[in-house]
Design a protein around this nucleic acid. Structure first.
Length: 624
DNA sequence: CTAGGGTTAG
């Protein structure tokens, strides 16, 4: 550091082009900027506010983290930095990896009594927006904004509104929104985003409908809001409305729509977007590539996902993670691990989500040893503390493999508090490996932890019923009713030419209901001729007669969706179904038989993974 | 030199 101060007396020969101060307009790298700095010190130009500012801007604009540190050092040595210089530093820190430093710098600015200008608060508020939780700071800054009179400036107030909206402080956001004298499009958009983020999607839509000057961001905000609230069907509908109004979607809008397609398994619509992007020659930026790839993977088209992946030169961590997760969901553990190794060779650092994907892959493929060693690397090599999700993956991995004791031990010794998902993984393992005693205990824990989650009661009741403890099982079901735990209905959807058809068990709401049930009867008859016997053992007990049980499983949502697929697609065409819960054993058997008897490929994505039924086999190897 | 929308898991 001192060398820099001494540099005026040094005798390092300068390159001829460094004789004059290079223009900072073009991007210089850190070394070049250091030379400029040295030259400025030599000539005394560093004392001049304008060139000094330009140097700071140049350093802050360089992409490497070291430049920012260097910029801070230069800044600290400037005698009385002006507002512009403070702003520049605050802006840079706000977007860095430690946004709280921007707030610290701001308090220094206050301490030095440097006046604010119109740019100060928007930069500073960016730091609040980038922090996971800065509610107290935001409130204080809000006070400063009022005191200094900047509340009258649209940019400042909109920035503040954005922070409140983004952090879910919906009350503060709406109060502020109401107080703004002339709300502009930006204010409205932020408010819509705020409502959507706090789950008040109807409020968001209300605002959206009231809005007079919607722009593409308004539309995208609303579409993304639907996606975030798991209302992907609505997201696609709104997108269609947008197109009907001849509003051209941009990259961001398309990315949101693709995300919706991914969740819905709406391959046709996803492909349409892909074609649209090509036709309009819209550039595939990293995010768009990633969601496109993810859409293919989530629609069961791993090959197409891989094609997008391979076509991408600079892959970021999201891209790698999404591809790994794609393999994991298809039970292709080896491929996922190979990809993970490639990723590390490329020098891309895995994050917590990457590890979730890799561990899931190990779990579904029964790769216990590999999973254990990856898990240990989270802390050892990557210096991260495993999250509760990672422990959940491990419990799942051990539990599936039948290592129930080890799984339980992991829960007992894990340093983070086990959540319901962790216990749920163990409970599921108890079901699969028929460990009733442990299952009972875990079930009790879960019902205390999540008294409103019907799935847990159903899970436990199933375990008890399988053991023949009908009374106990009935008691669990009654408890569920007493506690008012609403049963999440199983829902399967199938998407055809841009339209998503949803079915719940026993559904008769579809306009082709009669046809669907007739088709199902036909399928059933043919399967029974081939020797199919309905698997009613997993059914819950309130249905006494075997016949009733059969009726109940025969209107399972995935069966209705398959029947609908049969009457709407050509013989031999692949049927794609997305289910919100796990697929039941009987539906699994039936799907395998159908794939053989009718030579149909059925791709079924359930809550956690893919089942690809072909020639009487399932890609999960009957282990799920 | 300022504000608003999009990516990987659960």
């Amino acid at each position: 550091m001192s060398a820099l101060l001494l540099s005026p007396t040094s005798h390092i020969p300068l390159k001829p082009e460094a004789e004059c101060i290079p223009s900072l307009d073009k991007c210089l790298d850190k070394e070049e900027l250091k030379q400029v700095h040295a030259r400025m010190i030599k000539t005394g130009l560093i004392l001049d506010a304008i060139p000094a500012s330009r140097l700071l801007v140049g350093l802050c604009g360089a992409s490497d983290a070291g430049s920012l540190t260097y910029a801070l050092m230069v800044f600290e040595r400037i005698q009385n930095p002006n507002t512009f210089m403070w702003n520049t530093m605050i802006r840079s820190l706000s977007n860095g990896s430690n946004p709280e430093e921007a707030i610290l710098l701001y308090s220094q600015m206050l301490h030095d009594a440097v006046p604010h200008n119109s740019y100060t608060f928007p930069f500073l508020l960016k730091a609040c927006a980038n922090l996971p939780s800065a509610a107290a700071e935001t409130q204080q800054i809000h006070c400063h904004i009022i005191k200094t009179g900047f509340a009258l400036e649209a940019c400042t107030t909109n920035s503040l509104l954005h922070v409140y909206a983004k952090s879910g402080s919906i009350l503060s956001a709406s109060q502020l929104f109401d107080s703004i004298p002339c709300r502009d499009t930006v204010s409205w958009n932020s408010m819509i985003n705020g409502y959507a983020r706090s789950g008040k999607i109807e409020m968001a839509r209300e605002l959206f409908d009231q809005m007079e000057n919607k722009n593409i961001i308004s539309w995208t905000t609303m579409i993304a809001g639907y996606v975030e609230n798991c209302l992907c069907k609505e997201a696609l509908e709104l997108f269609r409305e947008m197109q009907a109004m001849d509003i051209e979607p941009d990259t961001v809008a398309l990315a949101s729509v693709l995300t919706a397609c991914a969740h819905l398994g709406a391959l046709d619509q996803g492909r349409w977007i892909h074609a649209y992007v090509k036709k309009k020659q819209i550039g595939l930026d990293p995010v768009l590539r990633c969601v496109l790839m993810d859409m293919f993977a989530k629609c069961g088209e791993l090959d197409e996902a891989l094609a997008v992946f391979r076509n991408t030169k600079e892959r970021n961590v999201c891209m790698w993670t999404a591809m790994i997760a794609g393999f994991a969901a298809h039970g292709q553990g080896r491929e996922a691990l190979d990809l993970f190794a490639d990723m590390e060779r490329t020098g891309i650092k895995p994050n917590g989500i990457t590890f979730t994907g890799v561990l899931t892959a190990c779990s579904y493929a029964g790769m216990v040893e590999e999973g254990k060693s990856i898990f240990e690397r989270i802390a050892k090599d990557c210096n991260m503390s495993p999250s509760v999700e990672h422990y959940g993956c491990m419990v799942d991995l051990l539990g599936r493999a039948g290592l129930l004791k080890e799984a339980e031990e992991m829960i007992k010794t894990m340093p983070v508090k086990p959540n319901a998902a962790v216990w749920g993984a163990l409970l599921d393992a108890c079901r699969v490996h028929r460990n009733f005693e442990l299952g009972r205990r875990v079930g009790k824990i879960l019902m205390d932890l999540e008294p409103k989650q019907s799935g847990r009661y159903v899970q436990l009741a199933g375990i008890l019923a399988a053991e023949g403890c009908w009374d106990e099982a009935a008691a669990v079901r009654n408890l569920m009713k007493e506690r008012g735990a609403a049963k999440l209905p199983g829902c399967s959807s199938i998407s055809l030419s841009g339209c998503v058809h949803e079915f719940v068990a026993g559904d008769r709401s579809h306009r082709q209901t009669e046809e669907i049930y007739l088709e199902w009867d036909n399928i059933l008859r043919r399967l029974k001729k081939g020797g199919y016997v309905p698997l009613t053992e997993n059914l819950l007990l309130d249905l006494g007669e075997e016949e009733e049980k059969e009726t109940a499983i025969h209107c399972h949502s995935e069966k209705l969706a398959i029947a609908f697929g049969f009457i709407t697609t050509k013989p031999g065409a692949t049927i794609r179904i997305v289910k919100n819960l796990r697929v039941c054993s009987d539906c699994h058997v039936v799907s395998k038989l159908i794939s053989k008897v009718y030579s149909r490929k059925i791709i079924m994505r359930d809550r956690t993974r893919f089942h690809v039924f072909m020639n009487g086999q399932c890609s999960c190897g009957d282990y799920w």
